[in-house]
Measured scan of single mutants.
Amino acid sequence: RRPMNAFMVWAKDERKRLAQQNPDLHNAELSKMLGKSWKALTLAEKRPFVEEAERLRVQHMQDHPNYK
């Protein structure tokens, strides 16, 4: 499986939080909310998630050198 990108790293915990706050929302609505929230973040706010995604990408390359 591919490593998570920055959005997916961020959305993993954010989706849980949103789902707890909005138990009646379907996954499609949660995804739309997550997309809008991600776009609203500044580059500085996204940076930790971008860095974690890069760390995961490098780790994935080391763990699976033949993955394409």
Rank of each mutant, 00 (worst) to 15 (best):
M8Q: 14
K12F: 14
M4N: 07
R57S: 09
R17Q: 06
A40Q: 11
P65G: 12
L41Q: 00
K12P: 00
R17C: 02
Q62C: 06
G35P: 01
R55Y: 00
P3H: 12
P65H: 12
R1E: 13
R55C: 02
P48F: 05
E54T: 06
P48L: 06
Y67N: 15
Q20E: 10
P3Y: 09
W38K: 03
P23C: 05
Q59P: 07
K32E: 04
L30K: 04
Q62R: 09
A40T: 11
Y67D: 15
E54L: 06
E45L: 04
P3R: 11
D13R: 05
F49D: 06
Q20V: 09
W10Q: 03
N5G: 08
S37L: 14
K12I: 08
K36N: 10
R15M: 08
L41N: 00
L34K: 00
R17S: 06
E54H: 04
R2L: 07
L56N: 06
P48N: 00
R55A: 06
R57N: 15
N22H: 15
N5T: 13
K36P: 03
Q59S: 12
K16L: 02
A40N: 13
Q62K: 10
D13E: 15
N22P: 03
N66I: 00
L18I: 13
P3T: 13
S37T: 12
R1W: 09
R55K: 08
L43R: 11
L25S: 06
F7Y: 12
K12C: 08
M8P: 02
R47E: 09
E54V: 04
F49A: 02
E14D: 01
Y67S: 11
E29W: 00
N27T: 07
E14T: 02
M61D: 14
N66F: 06
W10A: 01
K36C: 03
M61H: 13
A44D: 05
L34M: 10
Q62S: 13
M33V: 09
R55P: 02
M8I: 05
T42S: 14
K12Q: 12
Q20L: 09
R55Q: 07
P3N: 15
K32D: 15
L41I: 03
P3F: 12
K46C: 00
E52F: 05
A6F: 01
N27L: 11
H26W: 03
N22L: 10
M33D: 05
K46T: 02
A19K: 07
H26Q: 13
D24R: 09
E52N: 03
R17A: 05
R17D: 02
E52G: 03
E29N: 14
K12N: 10
L25G: 05
A40D: 08
R55L: 09
K46H: 01
Q21R: 10
S37E: 13
V9P: 01
F49L: 03
A6P: 09
H26Y: 02
L25Y: 08
L34E: 00
S31Y: 15
V9M: 08
F7H: 04
A6Y: 02
V9K: 04
L18A: 03
S37C: 12
Y67F: 05
L34F: 00
Q20K: 04
Q59N: 07
L56T: 05
R17L: 05
L43S: 11
Q21L: 11
E29Y: 10
E52H: 03
K36G: 08
E54A: 10
D13I: 11
P23M: 05
D24V: 05
D24N: 10
A53D: 03
L30W: 01
M8N: 14
R55E: 06
M8C: 12
A44F: 07
R17M: 07
K46Y: 00
Q62I: 09
E29R: 04
L30V: 11
K12S: 11
L56E: 03
L30C: 02
R1N: 08
A40S: 11
G35V: 12
K46M: 06
K39R: 15
N66Q: 13
G35C: 13
V58I: 14
F7G: 01
F7W: 01
P48T: 04
N27Q: 12
R15I: 07
L25I: 08
E29L: 00
S31D: 06
N66A: 15
P65L: 12
R47H: 11
L41C: 04
R15C: 10
N5R: 02
L18T: 00
Q62T: 13
V58M: 13
E52P: 01
R57Q: 12
H26M: 14
H64A: 14
K32T: 08
V58E: 13
Q59C: 04
